[in-house]
Amino acid sequence: NIFRISADLSHLASIVILLETIRKTRQVDGISLKTQLLYVLVFCTRYLDLLTFRWTSLYNTLMKFFFIGTSIYVIKLMQECKIKNPVAYKDMMARDTFQIKYLLGPSAILAMVFNYKFTILELCWSFSVWLESVAILPQLFMLSRSGKAGTLTTHYIFALGLYRALYIPNWIWRYYTENRFEKLSIFTGLLQTALYSDFFYIYYKKVIKGGGFELP
């Protein structure tokens, strides 16, 4: 459906913007390494079904490989910046101070409690949706601490937030057309979108209506 396609395209766009940001500036200014590492973990734990070879569609499989591949590629690019631009890298690390154990621990516990089946694959899947819902927090934390962000960085976060937000009308659509109701995806998706709400508001005010991006 149109919402699902738009969401996935928005997700793709966010990654293209992120790669463009790193490529263009040749540094990692304003990008949280911790958030990016969390995304590698999110995609690797969610797409374990690739190993079972029970593929739903070519589209699905290609996208899964794309998300795993690009998330790892981002880490590689960031590590290159460490060598090329050590001062900027150190500066980023000094500001990337969110304690991710507070995201990993609860996600693991929530996955044990809320899952569709107590199997490795399902537990990892549940862990990945819980973790994804909060994975942006180190990035938002970094942004709010510095108070400023490059335009590309804000576009990246916006596109990334829009992706999960668009999944919500997709779930409503699927509920009516397929009678499908995946409660874990829906709950974590709502949580994820809620975490972006503040950011969306500031983005709308500053970026859409003109002017620079500054957080209080």
Partner: peptide, 10 residues
């Protein structure tokens, strides 16, 4: 549905 959901979303 009562069967295990297929995770066909990304």
């Amino acid at each position: 549905s009562t069967t295990l959901l297929e995770h066909d979303e990304l």
